[in-house]
């Protein structure tokens, strides 16, 4: 429990910490995980722009990686990748 009693709550039910949903890890929803083959990747960033979470991280020189804390395993990235550099691997 982030706030214990009604006296501890910020007034007006506001959420004062921007982006605090990162404390909630949606990665547990996943049953398949995307695995990127960096050798195949052409760094087009289509997976990055299309990930709903976002859980594709964009790095130097447009390299990409998956943030498994949040990736829900939807498979959009694998489906959209023009060079099939992403494979969905079962986690079950």
């Amino acid at each position: 429990m982030k706030y214990k009693t009604w006296k501890d709550l910020p007034i007006g039910a506001v959420i004062p910490e921007p982006g605090s949903s990162v404390e909630y890890k949606t990665g547990t929803w996943r049953t398949f995980k995307p695995v990127i083959d960096q050798d195949k990747c052409i760094r087009c960033l289509l997976c990055w722009v299309s990930c709903p979470e976002p859980s594709i991280r964009r790095h130097e020189e447009n390299r990409v990686s998956v943030d498994y804390d949040f990736c829900k395993g939807c498979g959009i990235c694998a489906n959209i990748c023009p060079v099939k550099a992403i494979e969905m691997v079962s986690e079950l």
Partner: peptide, 28 residues
Amino acid sequence: PVNPIDPEKPVSYGPLDLFDYYIEHKKQ
């Protein structure tokens, strides 16, 4: 104003509140 909308201090107003906090908000 107390806690006004401020792009420098981004706050979310009017969230979804489930059974874990709603009654505390109402009591407050």
